[in-house]
């Protein structure tokens, strides 16, 4: 016997199947939605867990750094004073001896900078917040690297946004971030080049909260703003295989003795403490670092 669509029994059966299929599809959609929610919740949980582990690690590093700092800085004081004494009052007559003392002096300074970097890394959580004019802060910080830029024939271009809202931040720590970025840029352009610093402001949807309470002032009554500082160099860029590691403590692409590998780790941490971000990318010109100071919700 053949099948007929007009058969009432068959029609009833088809619509029943159709209803079942629709119901199943609906359940599948619900499942998919639940999966998305679960996944987001899992991601949030994972991120919170990582954050906790990070904080615990920092506390350990902090304790270690303070202990190491005390134990290492004392002998460094003796060495620094001793080397300076020899350089001044008992200088070797041969060039090798003079060079040896010079190398010792630099070695002590280098060891000291590693200790300072460790202390920075472990203490980035302490912020002393104050309202700052971002353009003025950038300008002041550029003065720190002026000599280095002149020496390497690096042209500095300022593209500062006008009427940026003031940003509540730890100015000293943000200067540290900027110095790190400017220094990396100048090191990448040993044969000269161009360093462009751009500041901008854009309106964004308010966020729930900012972790450290640091925030960007509002330029209008309607929307909070985020302030962005971009540092662009015209160097050769960062090797692709290094890009994922540049924020790891003690990772450096610089020659031995020229970098502790803590600068970017400290810098990102400082920005995160401000509720902001630091991203670094290669682009067609070289490397672009971008700092974003995020706003907080109105009344928060």
């Amino acid at each position: 016997m053949g099948w007929s669509a007009s058969d009432p029994i068959r029609r009833g059966w088809i619509s029943e199947v159709q209803a079942n299929v629709d119901e199943l599809k609906g359940k599948e959609r619900e499942l998919q939605e639940a999966y998305v929610v679960l996944q987001a919740s899992h991601e949030a949980h994972k991120s919170a867990q990582l954050q906790l582990i990070h904080v615990e690690k920092l506390e350990s590093v902090g304790l270690l750094a303070a202990g190491v700092a005390h134990e290492v800085k004392n002998p460094l004081t003796t060495l620094l004073t001793g080397v300076q004494y020899l350089r001044e009052f008992a200088p070797p007559e041969d060039d090798e001896g003079k060079q040896l003392l010079e190398d010792m002096w630099l070695a002590v300074k280098r060891a000291d900078s590693v200790i300072k970097g460790l202390l920075d890394y472990s203490r980035a959580r302490e912020l002393f917040l104050k309202e700052e004019n971002v353009n003025e802060l950038v300008e002041r910080t550029l003065q720190f690297v002026k000599h280095e830029c002149d020496k390497r024939r690096i042209k500095v271009t300022r593209d500062f946004g006008q009427e940026l809202p003031r940003v509540t931040m730890d100015g000293y720590k943000v200067q540290q971030v900027l110095v790190n970025l400017f220094t990396n840029a100048t090191h990448a352009m040993s044969e000269g080049g161009s360093l462009t610093v751009r500041t901008t402001c854009r309106s964004v949807q308010p966020q729930a909260e900012s972790p450290a309470g640091a925030h960007v002032g509002r330029d209008t009554d309607e929307m909070p703003s985020e302030v962005v500082v971009e540092v662009q160099d015209t160097g050769p860029g960062i090797p692709e295989e290094s890009l994922t590691k540049i924020f790891d403590p003690f990772f450096t692409t610089k020659p031995t003795g020229q970098g502790t590998g803590l600068g970017l780790a400290v810098s990102r941490q400082i920005m995160e403490m401000h509720g902001g971000t630091l991203d670094i990318q290669n682009n067609e010109s070289g490397v672009r670092a971008r700092l974003v100071f995020r706003p907080v919700a109105r009344g928060g």
């Binding site: 004392n74 002998p75 004081t77 004073t81 001793g82 300076q84 004494y85």
Partner: peptide, 12 residues
Amino acid sequence: DEESITRTLKLF
């Protein structure tokens, strides 16, 4: 408390 520090600083 570090004798090496007081000794070198004194010299200087």
